[in-house]
Design a protein around this nucleic acid. Sequence first.
DNA 1: CGATTGATTGATCCCTATCAACCGACGTGG
DNA 2: CCACGTCGGTTGATAGGGATCAATCAATCG
Lengths: 243, 243
Amino acid sequence: MLTELSPLTRKLSAFVALSDADVATLTRFDLRRRSFTPGHQMIHEGQSGSSAFVLAKGWAFSYKLLPDGERQIVGFHLPGDFLGLRSVLFRTSDHSIEAITRIEASEVLTSDILKSFAQAPRLATAVLWAASRDEAMVVEHLVNLGCRSAEERVAHCLLELGARLAHLELGDRTGYDCPLTQYHLADALGLSAVHVNRVLRHLREERLVTFQKGRVCFENFRRLTELAQFDEAYLDQDGPLLR
Amino acid sequence: MLTELSPLTRKLSAFVALSDADVATLTRFDLRRRSFTPGHQMIHEGQSGSSAFVLAKGWAFSYKLLPDGERQIVGFHLPGDFLGLRSVLFRTSDHSIEAITRIEASEVLTSDILKSFAQAPRLATAVLWAASRDEAMVVEHLVNLGCRSAEERVAHCLLELGARLAHLELGDRTGYDCPLTQYHLADALGLSAVHVNRVLRHLREERLVTFQKGRVCFENFRRLTELAQFDEAYLDQDGPLLR
DNA sequence: CGATTGATTGATCCCTATCAACCGACGTGG
DNA sequence: CCACGTCGGTTGATAGGGATCAATCAATCG
């Protein structure tokens, strides 16, 4: 059965045991299927009245631009992720989201979300949980920038993506396909692209990871995890709180 | 009337128009009043079964510790803030919270929260909104570390605290009382305490801000805002989405 | 085929960490 | 009441990590 559920349903089920009615409501989130080409701006900072999306296939990233042109990538988004929830709750979006690969996603209207909360309180809890999990990822990202060296940051980022993809069965401990450029990594990690390149070379020379031609290969998962002080606790919370 | 409402109620009212029943439910969050002394650990990372708090008076901060002893301060908390919501939703806390000043707070049990969601769906939406606002602050913090220089970071941090305190009428454009040490700033901004000191001296010499003896004084609010590229949009969202 | 995008490497510079020392304020205990 | 330890703030000297500037190269593409 699980294979027939949408990625979002699967994700939320990990938190609360959803009733059939809840699942039905969620299923309604999955109509209005759309697809986007690489580079498409799905959500614009400052835009009001934008809707949210549930990512079904492909990679995206959310970011903020500063007046001086600097770009900070806040996070990368993978299938199952809820995109632009904040843009809907606040009426005007405080960040932008861009497609990296070709993307398939379901558009979710503000009214869908608010109505479903009124009808299905368990679902509201589940969405709050999912939002909290996203916040936990941003927090870990913050720790990454605040406490770690360039090398540790790159390692941590590659490991986090690996762990998230593994949950989706899109990768394993040997590696995964990764459509990011070194510029993406640089803007996510607060480094220059030139330095990201050097760091990747060093990690390769140390036989820890390689990231070439769209593929990340873990050469020494153990040592890499130690180097990055990577602890995936923040990614998979232990089972349903609400039964 | 507003003055009789708890800080949390006031905050959530800014988003959804709460019914009397909702307000009553929230009022129940405000029993179990407790107080803590400076330095008290209100929430421990890794601890399970901890409860959440609504901060009524005083300052606190949440942080994460890395295995190597580095500390990243994730955010500072002011009256009205919901502390440890994530610790409750995930069963085990992924961060710690420590009191900076003497604190008064109301303890909120997990069961209170979950029950209230079932009874008052609007309230669930309001809490989700509040959580999203917190996430927006973490995101801005991330941008701070990723894109700004030491000087800009310090300026931005002092401005953000000023704006938040102004909303609470605990400060204005001239300045505010600030119980932070330079070590707090350092750990929040990914800098060394020594460097924070130098930056503060420089900002003082440039007649932009002073931070001495527990008081922040804005000397040139305009120029400081420009320097920090500070835009308070992420702090106050425009009025109720749900009426 | 020229143009663009992403990866790569080298040289140089500067911002910030680190180490070290010192000061004043405060609290505590002999 | 003074000695002492601690904590927060301050300043100086030095070192290093990462930015910046510049050039080259491979792959892709209209």
